[in-house]
Amino acid sequence: MPIPLWILTGPTASGKTEIGLEITENTGMEIISADSMLVYRGMDIGTEKPSLDRRNKIPHHLIDIADPWEEYSVGQYVKDFDAVAQSLCRQGKQFIVIGGTALYLKALVDGLFEGPPADWEYRNSLKTLAREKGPHYLHTLLGEIDPEAAGKLHFNDQKRIIRALEVFKTTNRRISSFQTQFGHKNPKYDCMLVAIDYDRDALYNRIETRVDRMFDRGLVDEVRGLVSNPRGLSRQASQALGYKEIVDYFLGKYTFSEVSREIKQRTRRFAKRQMTWFRSFSGIHWIHAGRDKDAASLSGQVLQCFLDQKNKG
Results as ranks from 00 to 15, higher is better:
E144P: 04
L126K: 05
N172W: 13
K152G: 10
H154D: 15
D64N: 15
E114K: 13
S87H: 08
Q86K: 15
G111S: 12
A66R: 05
W69V: 06
K127D: 04
K133R: 09
Y104E: 00
Q181E: 12
D110N: 11
R90F: 11
L193H: 06
W120N: 11
H154G: 13
V97S: 11
H184L: 14
R55T: 03
S177W: 14
R163W: 02
T180S: 13
G151L: 09
P50Y: 03
L88K: 08
G143C: 05
T170S: 11
Y77W: 08
G134D: 05
H139Q: 01
P147V: 13
D146Y: 07
R123W: 04
K159G: 10
P135F: 13
L126V: 07
A149H: 00
L165F: 09
K57S: 14
A66M: 05
L108K: 04
E121W: 10
P68A: 06
Q179T: 13
A107E: 01
R174I: 09
D119G: 10
P59L: 14
Q86G: 09
L103E: 07
K133N: 09
P135Y: 09
E70P: 00
H136F: 13
Q86P: 08
W120C: 01
I175S: 06
H139Y: 04
I98C: 01
S73V: 10
